[in-house]
Write a protein that binds this DNA or RNA. Structure first.
Length: 725
DNA sequence: GAGCACTGC
């Protein structure tokens, strides 16, 4: 960093000529500058520069509206300018949209062209140039850069913004920064957080100095219920209606947990409010991330006017998931209803399953929610729980993601970053040892780590791919099975939301449309069929609509595929296909299914004589998800996803053969490590038979046996011929 | 016979 003062920085900003472009400042610039001077953080410029010039790490707490995200990076870039050595300043954001919009805003504030001196870098979009001095980016993007440049030599300073969010990437970056600063005394690190939890950050960074900037919001009155509510949904709807009938003008934001609940609540609120003779008109909008963007935008519509001039005010009600807690802000909200729940990811290392659970929120989250009522004027927040519950039952902050996730990718990334000793890596919150063990075990079976836990060349290549380790393994192995083109497609589709649409009122038609793409050997090949049909249609939006496929999803899958292809080429992997063969059991499809096994051999289920499926090794009883196109005649299946709801479902499933599993993953299918179950006995017999005859003959026999088994079923052939495309 | 909170590379 430089040695400039706040006065010098301000003088440069108020001069005639823009020091970054050597052009005169515009009028618009001066107008914006006047507004910037009023931001709370502006009073702390001197204090900040003193701290950052004299310390390698600075922690900054800035509440909502303090201006930290836009101003702090500018303070630094002005300080950097006189002695600029060609190194950039990075400012990370957990979300892409934030990185883009903040960069746009700062480019305007600095009177430069976006992508020149100020830019952003997110997946699929690098909007920077050689001139770029200040770069906003996603935290995941900086992490990926670190994997190829472990000392982050391109940067003079790294600002980790929204650190209180504690995303996986931010947590790893923080640990990494602690390592890097030892080797890069010239690198400055600023950790910015919006919560009072900053003491924890300060301690983690060896008592780095802490600077605190107040926010600029309006007061929000908090109301608690006197007694606990037995049904939060009912209470929420009641409260919304009560506000509508009795409170002054101002919009309502209600937090619920998921799509179905939200749609249901919207209908009920609308229906009841329309029947209230003494209340104004009402507009109710749902908000969740899978809602099409067009529908999402409606939350910004104005509230309806009163029915008669001077009558009861019209009102807008937004019923939202956590999306409105941090990612999106809606101006004009005056009333917030907080039932105190959200869906949260939890990871169970014992059965290796991530699932979503409706759980009580944290105090920090409750505060964030109530703050949403005070963005434009004083507001009110109705918490549908008791004050006592808030004080005594809610945890302080939501558990960071690293404590709630499967860490396969994280461990691989850390290894790639050169962190050999994971057990002693300085996590801000160390994950459970069992979770780390599970990750190491997975990576070892996949061949990414050797038996000593060191990264193999395969693991190093796997880490380069922006997908789960299993999928990376599939991609890298796929040329050996002659089907990398097809595996790229399947992996892309597994990395986007569900392609198949199923509107509640057109289920039958949607299912029929989907049946056209069904492949008898499973859902992975069905995905491949859809993609081919989409490409054949000329990537036609109408075709998607007519066939109940999500156009946006297919488009983004194609985007992902293009990126994967670049990574394949970079890794010098062949892009190949087997000659197409219409037979479902022909080599074209068999090759693809074998490649699937190479990544997913740890997610296998075996059908017992009872008809139940049991997951291999963990012996969990599971059922095929009803959306699966596979019927129940498949003895061995691999699955992409274990869905834990009222039932245990496996979703996105394909039929495989025991022989392939034994060949592809002999160490995982070492029967000594198997608990007793039918599947184990089947494999034992298979191994015995293989010992007594050559495996090639045996495989042919097996093929024959299966063919007979299937054609026993009268309807099966008919179905096959209908499904085959 | 159907539970995708939210992000990110």
């Amino acid at each position: 960093m430089g040695a400039t003062t706040a006065e010098q920085g301000e003088a440069a900003e108020e001069g005639e000529i823009n020091p970054f472009t050597n052009k005169p400042f515009s009028d618009k610039y001066r107008k914006i500058l006047a507004g910037r001077r009023k931001l709370p953080v502006n009073k702390h410029r001197k204090e900040f520069l003193d701290l950052v010039q004299n310390n390698q790490v600075v922690i900054l707490v800035g509440e909502t509206g303090s201006g930290k995200t836009t101003q702090i990076p500018q303070f630094m870039v002005f300080d950097d300018l006189p002695a600029f050595k060609g190194k950039k300043i990075a400012c990370t954001q957990p979300r892409r949209l934030a990185a883009m919009s903040v960069a746009q805003r700062v480019a305007e504030e600095m009177d430069v062209v976006m992508g020149q001196e100020v830019g952003y870098n997110i997946r699929f979009e690098d909007c920077t140039s050689e001139r770029t001095m200040l770069q906003y980016m996603t935290d995941g993007m900086l992490l990926r850069e670190a994997m190829n440049d472990p000392l982050l030599t391109r940067y003079s300073a790294v600002i980790l913004d929204e650190a209180h969010d504690r995303t996986l990437s931010t947590d790893i970056l923080m640990g990494l920064m602690k390592e890097i600063i030892k080797k890069r005394p010239d690198l400055k690190v600023v950790v910015m957080s919006a919560t009072l939890d900053a003491g924890k950050f300060q301690k983690y960074f060896d008592d780095a100095p802490l600077m605190s900037v107040p926010g600029r919001t309006f007061p929000v009155e908090i109301y608690y219920t006197p007694e606990p509510e037995s049904d939060y949904l009912e209470a929420a709807i009641f409260t919304a209606l009560q506000i509508h009938r009795t409170e002054d003008a101002g919009d309502i934001l209600l937090f619920l947990t998921g799509e179905e609940e939200i749609e249901d609540a919207c209908r009920k609120i609308k229906a009841e409010a329309d029947q209230m003779p003494d209340a104004g008109p009402i507009k109710v909008y749902p908000l969740y991330s899978t809602l099409p963007p067009q529908a999402q935008k409606r939350i910004y519509d104005d509230a309806p006017p009163p029915r008669t001039p001077g009558g009861r005010p019209g009102r807008k009600v937004v019923v939202s998931t956590n999306l409105a807690e941090t990612s999106l802000t809606i101006d004009g909200i005056v009333y917030v209803i907080d039932p105190g729940f959200s869906k949260q990811k939890v990871y169970n290392p014992r059965i290796r399953v991530e699932s979503l659970l409706v759980s009580p929120i944290s105090k920090a989250s409750a505060q964030q929610r109530s703050g949403r009522a005070g963005r434009t004027r004083p507001g009110k927040c109705f918490r549908l729980y008791t004050e006592n519950a808030f004080m005594k039952e809610l945890i302080e902050t939501t558990y960071p993601e690293i404590l709630r996730s499967n860490l396969g990718t994280v461990v691989l990334q850390l290894k790639k970053l050169g962190i050999d000793d994971l057990v002693h890596f300085d996590f801000m919150d160390p994950p459970a040892p069992e979770t780390l063990m599970r990750a190491l075990e997975l990576l070892n079976y996949l061949g990414a780590l050797d038996d000593d836990g060191n990264m193999t060349p395969l693991g190093s290549t796997m880490a380069d791919f922006p997908v789960d380790p299993q999928l990376a393994k599939m991609l890298i192995t796929s040329p050996q099975y002659g089907c990398s083109n097809e595996i790229m497609t399947i992996v892309s589709l597994l990395n986007v939301p569900l392609v198949f649409m199923r509107p509640p009122d057109q289920r039958k038609m949607a299912d029929e449309a989907k049946a056209q793409f069904s492949h008898p050997d499973g859902d992975h090949l069905t995905l491949l069929n859809v993609y081919h049909a989409y490409k054949t249609s000329g990537e036609d939006q109408k075709w998607c609509y007519d066939n109940f496929c999500n156009y946006r999803t297919l488009k983004s899958a194609d985007n992902v595929r293009t990126q994967l292809k670049r990574y394949m080429e970079r890794a010098d992997l062949d892009l190949v296909s087997l000659p197409f063969d219409e037979r479902p059991k022909g080599p074209y499809y068999t090759g693809i299914r074998k490649a699937l096994c190479a990544g997913y051999f740890m997610q296998v289920a075996h059908q017992e004589r009872s008809g139940n499926y049991l997951t291999v090794k963990d012996n969990q009883v599971v059922r095929l998800h009803p959306s699966s196109c596979l019927d129940h005649a498949s003895e061995w299946v691999i699955y992409n996803e274990f869905v834990l709801t009222n039932q245990n479902y496996i979703r996105t499933v394909s039929e495989v053969r025991a022989e392939w599993l034994l060949d592809i993953a002999p160490s995982y299918f070492d029967l000594d490590s198997f608990p007793n179950c039918e599947g184990k006995r089947v494999l034992e017999k298979l191994i015995m038979r293989r010992k007594s005859s050559s495996s090639r003959e045996r495989d042919d026999d097996e093929d024959e046996r299966r063919k007979n088994r299937k054609s026993d079923r009268g309807d099966r052939d008919r179905k096959d011929s209908k499904r085959r495309r």
